[in-house]
């Protein structure tokens, strides 16, 4: 079994005097897991992410990285932030520098690395996201998809163990959505631990190996996609739709065309059974 890399135990978080944004959340994430985080807006996904990366510190409970509870000192928080990166939903709220190169180099610069090391990491991240040709361009004249790629390169340059994508496909066109999925698959194959929040259940079904469902600041369900999406209680409570492929699979099983217990996650997998 894979080792646990990041763990959250009994975490609660409160936004200034208001209702609780997260309540008693416990989850343990293993190295290399591909996790989708779903749930309606305001269910606590973003707050959960910000806690995972140390931007927000929990009111109760703890975040445990590689077996060590993360304290509140700047040093410990920065260690967490270095190893757990977030690609924010809105690239414009993340991009700060005035050229693509400076932007991708911002994280490594903050890590206090040598000039050569910063350059090496930045070059590699830009190459990974196919941004070398526009490295001297200002981010504010890039298109939405290009900005998204820059915001991913930002995080890759920090070489985090865990990468969180907060609704990465929001406001992306189909071409860029496909590009993003490719990147996610590629990163997954390289063994990175990924957490992706999304509303696209079909994407979740074909990509994720584990699903966390948030509802009202709690984790409503945690399991493999075929478990989660077959649980009508969960679907109802979290206002989720069933993935089309699962519907088709269930229909085929009912008609006796497909054996029970088979859950293909992609159309290609389904075709293999025939």
């Amino acid at each position: 079994m894979r080792e646990t890399i990041l763990e959250v135990s009994h975490l609660s978080y409160l936004y200034e005097g208001e209702h609780e944004a997260l309540h008693d959340v416990s989850v343990s994430i293993k190295r290399g897991e591909q996790i989708a985080v779903i749930g309606s807006n305001g269910a606590g996904k973003s707050t959960f992410f910000l806690n995972l990366n140390g931007v927000l510190t929990p009111k109760e409970g703890a975040v445990i990285y590689e077996g060590q509870a993360v304290g509140r000192s700047r040093k410990e928080l920065n260690r967490l932030r270095e190893h757990v990166g977030i690609v924010f939903q809105d690239a414009d709220s993340q991009i700060i520098a005035s050229t693509v190169y400076q932007e991708a180099a911002f994280g490594p610069m903050n890590l206090g690395l040598s000039r050569e090391e910063v350059k090496e990491r930045t070059d590699r991240a830009l190459r990974y996201m196919d941004l070398e040709a526009m490295k001297d361009r200002p981010p504010h004249y890039l298109s939405g998809g290009e900005k998204k790629r820059v915001s991913i390169a930002d995080i890759l340059a920090m070489k985090p163990e865990v990468i969180i994508f907060d609704e990465p496909t929001a406001s992306l066109d189909p071409v860029n959505t496909a590009m993003l999925e490719e990147v996610l698959v590629k990163l997954g194959k390289e063994g990175r631990t990924l957490l992706v929040s999304t509303h696209d259940v079909d994407f979740v079904y074909r990509w994720a190996e584990r699903v966390l469902v948030f509802e009202g600041g709690r984790i409503l369900a945690d399991g493999a996609p075929e478990e989660i999406f077959r649980d009508s209680q969960v679907l109802k409570k979290a206002h989720l739709k069933k993935p089309v492929l699962l519907e088709v699979t269930e229909f085929l099983v009912r008609k006796g065309l497909l054996g029970e217990g088979l859950y293909p996650h992609t159309v290609e997998e389904l075709q293999k059974y025939f």
């Binding site: 140390g54 931007v55 400076q102 911002f106």
Partner: peptide, 14 residues
């Protein structure tokens, strides 16, 4: 977003 990338109160650019 700045904090999440280890911003320490000092904006340093390449």
């Amino acid at each position: 977003a700045l904090e999440s990338r280890c911003y320490n109160g000092d904006l340093r650019f390449w």
